[in-house]
Design a protein around this nucleic acid. Structure first.
Length: 419
DNA sequence: TTCTGTCAAGCGATC
DNA sequence: GATCGCTTGACAGAA
């Protein structure tokens, strides 16, 4: 069972993708952005492999405006070798890649222009994975589309348009149930008529279930049967509801205890799990360390190193609890560790604790900074105490110091994430 | 320098 | 019938 995440890397600014607006989309600019994005993708794969993440969805924005007719940019030729190289890294490490065009790619629209653009977009995604020379288990996930007041006809139109697609697209296409219109029964109906494999989105299913009394496990079994040998192991999407968010909004992080319950429930099923969650790779690492052979005390200590200042600014008490939890080197208290971590992160930050964290981090710099930098920090801390500035401002200053005085341990920390 | 709004895509919900 | 939400980084203009 592989566990993975989608598109973006959290907690590492060096691994972010670039884009541009249409106005600036010259061939030169597109070439620069694509080069940057593909280099970044390579680094993301290396990060994933280091962290035992063997399932990854590549962002559709990896090549900006790649499916737009109006934009002339021959990325296929310019980056042929690079794509092959990326594919080689993935294949050598058994990384399963996928892509997922967004809600704007609608194959069943009554508007032929929209359908034409959807086909072009699917062609782009297919071409990308084809040029990486990935096998047919590396899929492109698509939603069914709109209902247009007549779901039955809209489903017919999906099937018709699907049959018109070229073989290489069909070979990669899989369909997913969504949280508003097409529930799993609709999607299975289309799958049985077309032979398209189905990605079962467990969270969408919770929000938008079909009538009837089939259990989740029954649906999972039916869905799994749509995957043939060449399609690889069935893939599912897993996410959790954002507390106090709109129904369907993805949570900040995957709450491990809920995930472990789910994992236990489906243990008889051979599936790959794509997490859809705001903190992306961070949750993937969490779930992998808790459910696979990859979990070791050393990995847990590395995790602690990355999270400790975030914990500290929320709760000094939990900071101490985790430290003591990790003292016994013969144990592997992964569930308790993340439970405490989640508890800390959901505690509101308090000024005093934030100040404490700021001073801990300042400790990395205090012996190497100039007198002027020292004065500036002391002044900022005073302003923070008098509530003239928020902690973010002091943090940003510390982050600038980190750029000037590099420190690997601090650089790996999530303390500066989201500045 | 930091913030807020707009862009780019299509659909459906809401007023 | 017009507007908004969904998503994200880039970009412009305001504060």
């Amino acid at each position: 069972m592989k566990i993975g995440y989608a598109c973006l890397v959290a907690g590492n600014q060096e691994l972010s993708l670039k884009s541009c607006t249409m106005k600036y989309a010259t061939p030169q600019k597109l070439r620069e952005i694509t080069e940057h994005n593909l280099n970044t993708l390579e680094q993301i794969l290396e990060y994933n492999i280091r962290n035992s993440i063997y399932l990854f969805r590549i962002s559709s924005d990896i090549i900006p405006f790649a499916s737009k007719k109006e934009v002339e940019f021959s990325w296929q030729e310019l980056f042929k070798e690079k794509l092959e190289w990326i594919g080689k890294i993935a294949k050598e490490n058994q990384v399963r890649l996928s892509m997922h065009p967004g809600q704007y790619t609608v194959l069943n629209s009554p508007d032929p222009d929209v359908v034409e653009r959807a086909v072009l977009d699917l062609a782009y995604h297919t071409e990308f994975l084809d040029l990486c020379q990935m096998g047919s288990e590396c899929k492109i996930i698509l939603h069914i589309g709109g209902a247009y007041g007549d779901k039955k006809t809209a489903k017919e139109r999906f099937v018709e348009n699907y049959h018109r697609l070229p073989e290489n697209i069909k070979n990669r296409l899989v369909i997913e149930n969504d949280d508003k219109i097409y529930h799993i029964e609709d999607v299975m109906d289309i799958a049985l008529r077309t032979g398209i494999p189905v990605v079962f989105d467990v969270f969408h299913h919770e929000i938008n279930p079909p009538d009837g009394n089939r259990t989740l496990l029954e649906w999972l079994r039916l869905v799994s049967e749509t995957w043939k040998e060449k399609d690889g192991i069935p893939k599912i999407h897993y996410s959790q509801q954002l507390a106090n968010g709109k129904p369907g909004a993805h949570s900040e992080t995957i709450k491990l205890s809920f995930f472990l319950d789910f994992h236990h429930m489906i243990q008889q099923n051979h599936v790959d799990i794509m997490l859809e969650v705001k903190d992306k790779n961070l949750s993937a690492v969490k779930c992998i360390l808790a459910t696979t052979e990859q979990g070791t005390m050393k990995k847990l200590e590395e995790e602690w190193g990355r999270y400790k200042y975030n914990v500290l600014e929320h709760s000094h008490q939990i900071y101490l609890e985790i430290r003591s939890l990790l003292k016994d080197k013969s144990a592997y208290p992964v569930t308790m560790f993340y439970s405490l971590l989640e508890q800390a992160m959901s505690t509101p930050v308090i000024d005093g604790q934030q100040r404490n964290a700021l001073q801990h981090v300042w400790g990395y710099f205090k012996d190497q900074v100039t007198e002027q930098e020292k004065k500036k920090f002391v002044q900022m801390l005073e302003e923070f105490d008098r509530k003239m500035i928020d902690a973010g401002k002091v943090k940003r200053y510390l982050f600038r110091l980190l750029e000037k005085y590099p420190d690997l341990y601090l650089k790996n920390s999530y303390y500066f994430t989201g500045l």
